[in-house]
Design a protein around this nucleic acid. Structure first.
Length: 948
RNA sequence: GCCCAGAUGGUGGAAUUGGUAGACACGAGGGACUUAAAAUCCCUUGACCAUAACGGUCGUACGGGUUCGAGUCCCGUUCCGGGCACCA
């Protein structure tokens, strides 16, 4: 009896042995080089895994196993991002408590993951909802609360240092990240009470309470961060989001804008994702210029990147939310302005984004252009945003399309400043050309500057210099990156380790962390924003006893209310890679030793949808911990690979209108039909299984079919993989039918890891067949190992070394699909060569081990090894097996291949050309031709250019 | 509007980075084995023309260019995907 490839038996056996032998347990080992591979950990959603989810895990597992075989000490951990909206929404939808659903879902995920044969070290598993884990999320928050950011040294510092500065000098001489620019003296500071001081410090802390406009989502009952809102609706659920002013915890991410930008130059991420982050950070170099309000001593500041256009300003515009609006509006215009502000307030964020209508109102006030002395009317318009720059602009309609539209609409003057710019139809926005129309030097008493004849770039530089030298303003860099709103009016998240002592937010002592999430029966969010934690009875802080107590005691001495908000999903996922280094440490997030050994993630694999969320927050968080001296590397993820999405391939049947008859794809044009999604699992190669279809749903019991060639052919389309399209393929089902090794191989064979591609189960047979063929290399007809120890044949060695070279190079570049093709070719060659050589086939097993670990273990054991194949040394190749004794070259005349010739492998181009020209076939061509030129490319081609 | 990435058979995708386009796999067609099915194996499979056999022409979204030679490099166009977007 031939020995069959019994994948079920093999895979079960090795899953058991890997657990028993702790094969994938990792410990720090100073004697070995480390390598840290990480996947973005999953949200354990209720739907379980479909075949798209493990794609990245398989890719990184292959890399991890490869590195391990190369002798690295590889950290390849896994865990669960189990706090936050997705987990909670699932709980709400199923009407169960998130505590319950989260753990159920985690178990289900684990069960599915275990079937695929990953080399995860589960001893290091982390869960963000575990108090032992969120201890350190809360701890980091407290550290941020206790820090400010020094802009001069570009570093976070303890807030005590800033307080000391205030005590001595007030705000004099500080250059720090802050919400708004405050100015006070040491005397003023010292005179303030604790509450006032606390409020002022919020202007500087890296984690602070801020009264800001937030994205409020009534349906989700919580505020959302900017990256959680797209086009005015929530990313989760697609519910409307409105702007609301609320007092919220925020993280001063913007302080790190420049470092976040600079760091991108030091890491190996795809250009597109770096570009996305650059856009999101939105650095913009410009100038702030002060304008005086006419007949007043008040001034206000605008921000512009086009300082060269100072002479083209014809009006000013304020954002409707700007406090200046109230200050400058004249009594005559007040009514109109009030009406306008009411109109703006009534517009939702979504309306504002979609509908860019030109609206605005004159305030009645004028601003004096410091360069010309001209009086420019001050308008209010919704096209100026309050949250960017200073919330006020100078309008240069000739060179800004938005100002142009506004000027046209309200009949304001347009003054062009660039030679040859025609602004009769549209503005000239390009930052190029020669500046004109600025007054000659000394022409106005206001300004000695002339820009005429300069390029735009030169003019900007000259104006900046002038502004600074004359105290008219300053050079300023603005960033679009906003501070992150850090609180959620939700239940399922980390509580803030903060209580309110006489209204002053106060940290609970570090030694009392973690502050555990209390159980509440009613965890549902409310549309009004009442936090569910308000339902917790035992939720007050006893300062004396240092513990959580019943909130009814709040009026007593030393007992204060605790914060009722929870942290957002990204809190727990921002530093989890550090925790994996030292997951059981109870005294620190990560010990200095563990951090020093593992450093940072060498290879991070995950979806590009986190570009402006997790991947920004994590970098911010790590930079902060770096400033604290906790993390030894400034960037957390050195190389990032973004796996593509696996799309679904849906199938359709075509029902003839008003009947229960279905017509095959090729004949559907003859009828009026409705396409209906049909479960892809009852379709094979687009042929419908009629019996399964009838029993799929009761209404199809009596279905009738119009077939072509006796078959029902379904239509198909590539769509998102989702339950509603019946195109979800479950990995468990594939593992059951073909085995985990086949699944792993096929997921990689589908195409490049970084590319999105549709899943089509039909192709999987090819990979399964390959594994069977590979298996059969080892066994004879009687099921005995058929290996020989003789000298391997030259051709089998050539096959082997070509394979080693190809696979080694491919793994490094994540081209797993071509590696697998190479395996298929090599296996066919060995079969044809009747290769049974132990030396050759042992190395083949070592090579295939990262891709198909179960079959590799089984064969490795059969070969007589008593160690796991995952510690088998990665084979190296020797070029000597790859050299060809002769080279067959195509010979071209005028670029067309005419014949081919064999040359010795070491022939020089000159020798080849000489030999070709001497050949009979060449002679025939050349009789009536003249050789113009000959080109020989070694090992490729000889080309001879001729003419009659 | 700006920025990034891409377009190759019926399908997923290869192509040594400027050197015989279509590797490998699926699907399809034909054949072998079998009572039959499954499994396995062999042949054909970019398009068109042609043949007993050979052979030829076209072909990597489209139009130009550089080159002895272009899927690959340059310029322009179209289409698809992604990011940013009244950001001054």
């Amino acid at each position: 009896m031939a020995r069959e490839y019994n994948f079920r038996e093999i895979e079960q056996k090795w899953h058991r042995l890997w657990v028993e032998k702790q094969t994938y347990k990792v410990t720090e080992d100073a004697g070995r080089r480390k390598f840290y591979v990480l996947n973005m950990f999953p949200y354990p959603s209720g739907a379980g895994l479909h075949v798209g989810h493990p794609l990245g895990y398989i890719a990184s597992d292959i890399y991890a196993r490869f590195k391990r075989q190369q002798g690295y000490n590889v950290l390849n951990p896994m865990g669960y991002d189990s706090y936050g909206l997705p987990a909670e929404q699932y709980a709400i939808q199923t009407g169960q408590h998130p505590e319950k659903t989260t753990f159920q879902n985690i178990d289900r995920y684990r069960e599915q993951l275990d079937k695929i044969g990953f080399s995860f070290d589960w001893n290091r598993e982390v869960r963000t909802c575990d108090p032992g884990y969120y201890h350190w999320t809360q701890w980091a928050f407290q550290k941020m609360f206790g820090s400010y950011f020094c802009l001069k040294c570009q570093q976070a510092k303890p807030i005590e240092q800033l307080i000391q500065h205030f005590e001595q000098q007030g705000t004099e001489g500080i250059t720090v990240a802050q919400t708004e620019e405050l100015a006070f003296t040491a005397e003023e500071w010292r005179a303030w009470d604790e509450k006032r001081k606390s409020d002022v410090l919020m202007n500087y802390r890296l984690a602070f309470l801020g009264e800001t406009m937030v994205n409020w989502c009534p349906k989700l009952g919580t505020v959302l961060a900017n990256d959680e809102v797209v086009e005015g609706v929530s990313v989760r659920g697609g519910y409307p989001v409105e702007q609301k002013k609320m007092r919220q915890w925020c993280l001063r991410v913007s302080a790190y804008a420049q470092r976040l930008l600079d760091g991108l130059e030091t890491i190996q991420w795809s250009e597109s994702i770096k570009e996305t982050q650059r856009n999101w950070i939105g650095r913009s170099e410009g100038t702030e210029v002060k304008f005086r309000i006419a007949s007043s001593d008040e001034t206000f500041t605008i921000f512009t990147t086009r300082a060269d256009t100072m002479f083209g300003v014809t009006f000013m515009v304020l954002a409707p939310e700007s406090e200046l609006v109230q200050q400058v509006t004249t009594p005559e215009q007040r009514q109109q302005v009030e009406d306008y502000l009411r109109y703006v307030k009534g517009r939702t964020e979504r309306e504002r984004q979609i509908d860019h209508r030109v609206t605005g109102v004159f305030t009645g006030a004028y601003a004096i252009n410091p360069f010309t002395g001209e009086k420019n009317p001050i308008w209010v318009s919704e096209y100026v945003l309050s949250g960017y720059g200073t919330g006020a602009i100078m309008a240069v309609p000739a060179h800004d399309s938005r100002d142009y539209a506004f000027a046209r609409h309200f009949g304001l003057p347009i003054v062009p400043l660039i030679e040859g710019a025609d602004v009769s139809e549209e503005s000239y926005d390009a930052k190029e050309g020669i500046v004109c129309n600025s007054p000659a030097a000394g022409k106005t008493p206001y300004c000695s500057l002339t820009l005429n004849g300069l390029t735009v770039k030169e003019a900007i530089a000259a104006t900046k210099k002038y502004v600074e030298e004359n105290g008219l303003g300053r050079v300023k860099v603005n960033y679009r990156l906003r501070d992150a709103i850090f609180s959620r009016q939700r239940y399922w998240g980390e509580p803030f380790p903060v209580y309110y002592k006489n209204g002053i937010p106060t940290l609970i002592p570090e030694s009392c962390l973690p502050l555990c999430l209390p159980h509440v029966e009613s965890f549902l969010p409310t549309e009004t924003g009442e936090p569910p934690l308000g339902n917790a009875q035992i939720w007050a802080w006893d300062e004396q006893k240092k513990q959580v107590v019943d909130k009814q005691l709040i009026d007593e001495e030393n007992i204060f209310p605790l914060d009722l908000y929870t942290m957002p999903g990204f809190a727990g996922s921002s530093a989890y890679y550090l925790r994996y280094m030292d997951p059981h440490n109870e005294t620190a997030l990560v010990s200095a030793e563990a951090d020093k050994y593992w450093q940072s993630v060498d290879l991070y694999v995950g979806g590009s949808e986190h570009a402006t969320g997790h991947l920004i927050y994590s970098r911010f968080w790590n930079k902060f911990l770096f400033d604290l001296g906790i993390s030894c590397r400034e960037e957390p993820f050195q190389k990032l690979v973004n796996q593509g999405m696996i799309q679904g391939r849906s199938n359709f049947v075509y029902r003839i209108k008003d009947t229960n008859t279905f017509v095959s794809l090729g004949l559907k044009e003859n009828y009026e039909t409705t396409p209906i999604h049909v479960d892809v699992n009852i379709v094979k190669n687009d042929v419908l299984d009629l019996e399964s279809f009838k029993s799929w749903r009761p209404e199809y019991n009596t279905a009738e079919f119009i077939l072509e060639d006796g078959k029902y052919i379904c239509g198909w389309a590539i769509e998102k993989m989702s339950k509603s399209m019946f195109n979800v393929v479950n990995p468990d089902m594939i593992v059951e039918r073909y085995g985990a090794d086949t699944l792993r191989l096929y997921e990689m064979f589908l195409g490049p890891v970084e590319q999105s591609k549709p899943w089509d189960t039909n192709g999987i047979d090819g990979c399964h067949r390959f594994l069977k063929k590979f298996w059969q290399l080892f066994w004879d007809k009687d099921g005995q190992l058929q290996l020989t120890d003789d000298e391997p044949s030259a051709e089998s060695m050539k096959t082997l070394h070509r394979l080693i070279k190809k696979v080694t190079a491919d793994i490094e570049t994540f081209n797993y699909n071509t590696s697998i093709s190479a395996f298929m070719v090599a296996t066919n060659e060995w079969t044809a060569q009747h290769c049974t050589n132990r030396q050759v086939l042992s190395q083949a097993v070592a090579l295939i081990s990262p891709f198909a670990p179960h079959i590799a273990e089984e064969l490795w054991e059969a070969l007589g090894h008593d160690t796991s194949v995952c510690d088998a040394e990665w084979p190296s190749y020797d070029e000597k097996y790859l050299v060809e004794s002769s080279v067959r070259l195509g010979v071209q005349f005028n670029g067309k291949v005419k014949f081919s010739m064999d040359f010795p492998a070491d022939a020089t181009p000159e020798q080849m050309v000489a030999q070709v020209l001497a050949a009979d076939e060449a002679q025939r061509f050349l009789q009536e031709m003249q050789v113009v030129k000959t080109i020989a490319v070694p090992k490729r081609i000889v080309n001879i250019v001729v003419r009659p």
